[in-house]
Every structure is written in structure tokens, then in C-alpha cells.
Design a protein around this nucleic acid. Structure first.
Lengths: 156, 156
DNA sequence: CCGTATCCATTCCGATACTG
DNA sequence: CAGTATCGGAATGGATACGG
């Protein structure tokens, strides 16, 4: 009756979800991108209970998504995104784009640091450089990469 | 004491999470991309309990991520990704990439339908075409797009 | 200000039994 | 095969009181 875990799952999607597939964790990371660094900042901007925030911050630090950096002249520290954590911007942006496409205005926009203007939307490219749309792709087991798709038995 | 909801949140990330930010939902979508269509296929490939699967399928259909398509000569139907559902491949791919980058081999690879070869990784581009890395971007409120970043008071 | 510890309601999840 | 109904245990989330 115990809840299933995906930590050992072969699929990286499942493992990632186990790690950061929690709503609060994602929102904490979002706020980290938006500039939050202090415990109180996260607490205030998210309206999250302290114990939950503590728990999630701990997990995110343990995962290497956030790191604690000491504050000069203070006993406390800030939470900063690590490289691994910044890697999550792709995930956030994908989620954001999807959420925008499905109604509702955007509250956050990804901008180019240089000129502060929005970046072009996410784009996929084929290995030869062609740009790919949703219908040009499909998810297959790695073992079958390059192979012609076998017929799927439709259990008749 | 009721659990917080983000359905009405201004941020599309929060709203999206409320919709599909659940581990099972995401994995169901993953399986849909991988070819699962029948109730029993999802049940078997995910090892999910029937009642939960029922619940999630229902939600995903209500959300417009999946749709029920009748099967000829059967009282049953299949669950197929809608356009909105296929839009989630960006999210899945971003999660997958992140998960891969953080150890563990990939079990799924995104391939080009034409030649069955892997697609190039996700890439961001500036509006003028330059390719952007993680450190070239940052997430800001839409209202501040184009504006110079104001100093953040560090509450000292 | 930054947590920790505790309490309690709600929700979730898995197993099982049952239906058409 | 594709669900529905129900149940108990577990995990979660929120409030609050407390400590450094």
C-alpha cells in the first residue's frame, strides 16, 4: 500500500518527476529564477507553509538544484540555483509555453539578458538543421532509434 | 487547512502544474507518446491502480489533453493525444533532457520521423537569431520586459 | 529572521471485490 | 477488457507554537 517510487525507474522523465515533480518544488525553482533567494522571500511570494518550504528547500539542496550560500555578516544564508538548477529553465519554459498556449496571459516572459527582449519560442531541430514541428516527432525507446517502427499489435 | 489550488494563479507555470503537475498524469502522457492507447496498456506499462488511472484519464480528457476515440466493432475506445496534448512533448523533452543530464541513461529518445534519427537538443534563440545559453537568460515578470532591472533590496 | 516540532484534516494511493 | 465502489494506510499540507 505504500506509494510507488520512481527513483530507480529507467526512464529519466519518471526519475526527474520523482525529484522535482512536486508542485511546490517547481514553484520554488520558478521563484528562484524570478529572484527569490531568502527563506522569507519564498515564503512570502508563494504563500507556502514554513514546514513545507523547509522540506522542499532541503530536498532541492540535497538534489543539487539549489545551494546554500552564506551571507556576509549574518548567521543565515541564501538559496541559489546551481548549474543543475538553472538547467531546469528549459522545463519551466516548456511548461510556461504550454500553459500560455492553453489560455490565460503570461505573467513571466523569458528575455535576452542583453537587450531585455523576449527570446524566440523553444524550437526543435533535426540533426541536419531542419526545424521540426510537433507532428514531425515522436518518442520511441532508445533501442529503436534509427530502426523502422514495427507494427503494434492491436490486441484483436 | 484545505490544500492550496493554483487554477486561478496568474502564472501559467502554476496553472499548468495544477492541471498536469501530477506524476501519474505526466507518465500517462509519456506513455501516450510512447504508443499506449488502451486503458489496459496504460495500466500494464505504468503499474498504476485502476481507480487512479480512471481518475487521471478522466482529468486529462476533461482538460483536452487526451480524447476518447471509439474503436470500430467494440464497445470501448482508445485514448489519443489531442493537439493540446501533443503540445506537452516540449515539456516531456525538457524534463527528459534534464533527467538525463543528471545521471542515468536515457530510455527514450526523440527522433525525427523522417529518418528515425535523434533530434538535436532543445535550443533557445534570441529574437535576432543568436543562440542563447542558460546564463544568457533570466525569467522576469512580463510587465518588466524591455525594462532595465531595478535593484533588489536585500533587506539588510 | 529562519527555521523546527507538533497536531490534525484532507488527500492520495493501492488492493480488492464487483459489474457489464 | 474497462471500468466502478469501497476501504485502510500513508503521505501531504496548513496552522501554530516554539527555539536559536
Amino acid at each position: 500500500m505504500k506509494r510507488k517510487t520512481f527513483e530507480e525507474d529507467a526512464c529519466p522523465v519518471a526519475r526527474s518527476l520523482e525529484a522535482v515533480g512536486d508542485t511546490w518544488s517547481v514553484l520554488i525553482v520558478r521563484q528562484a529564477f524570478a529572484g527569490d533567494r531568502r527563506f522569507g522571500e519564498f515564503e512570502k511570494s508563494l504563500g507556502i507553509a514554513k514546514n513545507i518550504l523547509t522540506d522542499r528547500l532541503r530536498k532541492l539542496v540535497a538534489l543539487g538544484v539549489l545551494e546554500q550560500v552564506p551571507i556576509e555578516g549574518s548567521a543565515h544564508h541564501e538559496y541559489a540555483l546551481t548549474g543543475k538548477g538553472r538547467g531546469l529553465y528549459l522545463v519551466l519554459m516548456a511548461i510556461r509555453q504550454w500553459g500560455e498556449g492553453c489560455g490565460g496571459p503570461a505573467d513571466y516572459t523569458l528575455v535576452d539578458r542583453r537587450d531585455r527582449k523576449p527570446v524566440r519560442p523553444l524550437a526543435f531541430h533535426a540533426h541536419d538543421g531542419r526545424e521540426l514541428g510537433a507532428d514531425d516527432m515522436e518518442l520511441v525507446p532508445t533501442a529503436e532509434v534509427g530502426k523502422v517502427r514495427r507494427a503494434r499489435s492491436t490486441a484483436g
